[in-house]
């Protein structure tokens, strides 16, 4: 005979199994179209039986430098996105119906435009004789055109523009989930608005911040077209080197090694972001 507690536990376990079954198709799909190819890729990088490809990818200063530079740019894009996105998300979470509609429209419209088109639009706006420089010159603010394009700043502007929605939406979602009574309670207990934000709202929004940062960072590392066009050749991202190897030189084993190094670096930084935000939440 089983006790009522046991049967409850069995029911719970059965429910868990049933719920897990629901996830099986998705897991299978991921396994087939993602995990398996990644493993094949890993295998390809050591095809020749040596670690020579990895040696080149991790010890050669060219590839190290480019990897470091890519991580640096991804981190900068992430930081700028966070600074810009948080106030927007905060405003959206407090705005009325029309404010939300307008904000969503403004965020999603560029989101649905091809990255290539947007990148070319920046070329027109930021060039030496572009719209921005012409305005600044006509306003008497500058004498010589600002170098906004064909350097790191051009790449940052272009990438932040493309990736901003990925930061805004997770933060917005987590801000919406916060019970408004909590900050009301904090203020009712005499906390000024800034302290209630800092001690209540912000810590509770950290899951969104963490998700947004991770998304933007990971997507940034794989960026390709925007840095190629707006960097004027002076910015090289790892993804560009991988593309060269795959498409131009057909050195797939080396491309696989580079991709693996990039994947490992991404996972490591992803874990780091999770740890930092978790730490901050418990502080």
């Amino acid at each position: 005979m089983s006790s009522p507690g046991d049967s409850r536990r069995t029911t719970a376990r059965r429910r868990e199994t049933a719920l897990f079954l629901l996830a099986v198709p998705a897991l299978l799909l991921l396994g087939i179209i993602f995990a398996w190819p990644v493993l094949r890729l890993l295998a390809m990088s050591v095809e020749d039986g040596t670690l020579a490809n990895f040696e080149k990818a991790t010890l050669d200063e060219l590839y190290l430098y480019v990897l470091f530079d890519s991580v640096k740019i991804a981190a900068m894009v992430m930081a700028i996105c966070l600074l810009v996105a948080y106030p927007v998300a905060f405003w959206l979470s407090r705005a009325g119906r029309w404010g939300v509609a307008l904000g969503m429209f403004a965020l999603l419209l560029p989101f649905w435009t091809s990255v290539l088109v947007r990148t070319y639009a920046w070329l027109v706006l930021l060039g030496r004789n572009g719209v921005v420089n012409r305005w600044l010159r006509d306003a008497g603010l500058i004498d010589a055109p600002l170098p906004l394009l064909h350097n790191t700043s051009g790449v940052l502007i272009g990438m932040v523009h493309v990736l901003l929605p990925y930061m805004v939406f997770p933060i917005y979602a987590s801000l919406l989930r916060i019970d408004p009574d909590l900050s009301r309670a904090a203020e009712g207990l005499g906390a000024p608005a800034w302290r209630s934000f800092l001690r209540v709202t912000f810590p509770l929004s950290l899951p969104g911040v963490s998700a947004g940062c991770a998304l933007v960072f990971v997507l940034s590392l794989g960026f390709f077209i925007t840095p190629a066009l707006l960097g004027g050749g002076r910015v090289i991202m790892v993804s560009m080197l991988i593309e060269q190897q795959v498409r131009e030189f057909l050195d797939w084993p080396f491309a696989a090694a580079l991709s693996t190094v990039l994947l490992v670096a991404t996972l490591a930084i992803y874990a780091l972001i999770g740890r930092i935000t978790r730490g901050a939440r418990h502080a």
């Binding site: 027109v124 060039g127 030496r128 064909h150 190629a228 004027g232 050749g233 002076r234």
Partner: peptide, 16 residues
């Protein structure tokens, strides 16, 4: 001032 990467770029940069 620019190292171009797609064929449309040099034409556009001369026009601009």
């Amino acid at each position: 001032s620019v190292w171009w990467s797609t064929g449309a770029q040099p034409a556009q940069m001369l026009v601009d």
